[in-house]
Amino acid sequence: MAKVLVVTSGKGGVGKTTSTAALGAALAQTGQSVVVIDFDVGLRNLDLVMGAERRVVFDLINVVQGVAKLQQALIRDKRLENLWLLPASQTRDKDALTEEGVRRVIADLKTKFDWILCDSPAGIERGATLAMRYADEAIIVTNPEVSSVRDSDRIIGMLDSKTVRAERGERVEKHLLVTRYDAARAARGEMLSIDDILEILATPLLGIVPESQDVLKASNVGCPVTLNNTGSAPARAYIDAVRRLMGETVSMTVPVERKGLMDRLLRRRAA
């Protein structure tokens, strides 16, 4: 049974696209067939983060409008043969997406893939509501920061009211993914802790991705962090999250950087 997941947050810049790419790649590495869809019409970026920006010919809007077939728009990842990308349009505006068009595309993708990951644009307008519209499950990406938590709360409310599942009286299963987490700062009381966030949002935790330089390094070279540096702290966090998505019980820890003694001493002085 294909599963449709939306990666959403309300607030921009919290790591939706990074997380979609990282989770998609980690899922594909377990042998599942995965498609990631960019819903950010006009400001596409998932192609860039995945290193496929020069291979985009057709996009989601072309498929919705019948200009291109789905098979023509899907881009196969160069590293993983069972990972595919459906890019967003760079030129059209978001009104080109229709609810019926998105429904048809997702229904078609469901016959071809095990997992469909919808990378939502920021905000609560058309692009964001369409990205969540047909979702079975939702990953809410949150930073330990007041504006991000507030927007997540808003998005959770929308998942419970504006999705097809919600309208049918069914549940969209929700998962919280906390990114850019700094355990040391949280311990010093300088940052909302995981417990604070969970208490406020009352949503089950999928994973904790630590603040890490590896995330930027990976997007610099156009490779999901889970493929670029599999042993890095954020990659391990995403891989654990994927195992939980697939139903495994994995104890919740904040992965830490593996560093040498010199590294630690130098860093401490620099900070």
Partner: peptide, 29 residues
């Protein structure tokens, strides 16, 4: 001990704000 912890302030502000916003959203719907 360095700076005073700011996270408890963030937490309290959020709790108050969201209690208000949730009520309003639910009611208007």
């Amino acid at each position: 001990g360095g700076r005073a912890a700011s996270a408890p302030v963030a937490r309290e502000r959020l709790q108050i704000l969201l209690a208000h916003e949730r009520g309003r959203n639910g009611a208007s719907d």
